[in-house]
Design a protein around this nucleic acid. Structure first.
Lengths: 224, 224
DNA sequence: CGGCATGTGTCGCTAAGACGACAGACCCAG
DNA sequence: CTGGGTCTGTCGTCTTAGCGACACATGCCG
């Protein structure tokens, strides 16, 4: 099951790879590219939602802030992912915040143009459907984590995903760089900064892991 | 904001209403209808996912069970709603359990047929997109509740939604029937049965609410 | 109509984990 | 190279809510 999902994911990871070259060119023509640096906010809740974003480089986080000011991060996105896809699902205003967390290169295209392209290109249409299905599953898995896992398990599950998505495999383990702050991990896992610190250090004690502010290293290959 | 969502929801509530009559007939021809009684399971996790379900009457719950046997309910669906829509989003096996919780009348159609119809009918296509967007928002709101609200707030928020969706307005309040068991509410809100009992009785103390095993009544119109 | 299964009400215990506080480390900008 | 802002490590405290236990109510079915 895990195997299957992984394969499926890899096959479908980069939406744009599977689009035929003529559409690809059209997309290229019709979209705009820009660079955004860390801390830039791409959209806020309540803002009109008329654009699809393709993240080429960097990282973007999608999050929510409660009325009392608490923050939770719904997703951390890397190169090859898209976001703002709810605009093509009839959602007229944003409900989340999109913030660049690592200097990014982003392509944008208006939902109208994109919908037009989808209409002419069944393959693209299919890809987008699959992508949305994938996102739905991801969100439901997030709920499952929140309900069934305790804080420590959530943090570890997140680290696994993070390493798998953004890390590099070494002979003797895995490495990710740059690493996140404890607060960022806390927001991603709905825990507190202090708990993240504690769990991380416990893993260091157990000699499973090593980290500084710059990198995070897993000392075993099969920690997955 | 809440107003808008409500309106939007009502406009789009019954997917089938907005489909033009020729497609409607076709759908009617191609789908199968059946009755299912309480406790019947429509699908389990891991089962192949090749069908769209239209719930005409009754209630169905979509839930998950953890490895340790804990249960959480992701959604409680009523007449006019559809489920199993992930089949058209490329999800090949189910990840949730669909169980009838109130005797139901359900139409089913194979995903292939439905996709074919969607291809020929842009209006239907649009409706389904909106529906999926709506579902996505609902799930994200669920996460927000889990992260930001405490047990009591989640229970109350759920009761509001439940009353709004399934209740009838009275001169002096609202009424729903039949009512859920405390355990069912607990599963829906990721709390424990005892906590639900406590919260419910606290509301009875405060004279806001009245209930038996058969019905639940809110004693004020503006409890919404 | 009586008994058994299922649901409710209420305790008291316990643990998880949030939070504030504060010291010390780190790191970049000036 | 140094100082201030940010991040980390560690305590102790406090609250929330889950859980087991058990008595009682309800109601369904034979």
């Amino acid at each position: 099951m895990a195997e299957k999902t992984k394969l499926w994911y890899l096959q479908n990871f980069n939406l744009l790879d599977t689009v035929d070259s003529s559409s690809m060119e059209e997309l290229d023509r019709r979209s705009r590219m820009r660079k955004s640096s860390k801390k830039e906010i791409l959209y806020f809740p309540e803002e009109p939602n008329r654009t699809i974003y393709f993240l080429k480089e960097g990282k973007v986080k999608i999050s929510r802030v409660s009325e009392e000011g608490r923050t939770t991060t719904l997703q951390l996105l890397g190169p090859g992912e898209i976001f703002g896809e709810t605009s093509i699902l009839g959602q007229e205003t944003h409900e989340n915040i999109a913030e660049v967390v690592e200097d990014a290169v982003i392509c944008t295209i208006s939902k109208e143009m994109f919908q037009q392209m989808m209409g002419m290109n069944p393959k693209l249409n299919l890809q987008i459907s699959k992508f949305i299905g994938f996102r739905l599953r991801k969100i439901e898995a997030h709920i499952e984590d929140l309900v069934f896992k305790d804080a420590k398990e959530r943090i570890i599950a997140f680290l696994r995903r993070y390493i798998n998505t953004f890390g590099k495999k070494l002979i003797d383990g895995w490495m990710v760089r740059p690493f996140l702050t404890h607060q960022e991990i806390a927001d991603l896992t709905a825990t507190s900064r202090q708990t993240v610190t504690a769990v991380l250090n416990e893993m260091v004690q157990e000699d499973k892991v090593e980290y500084t502010r710059r990198y995070f290293r897993v000392k075993s290959v099969d920690w997955l």
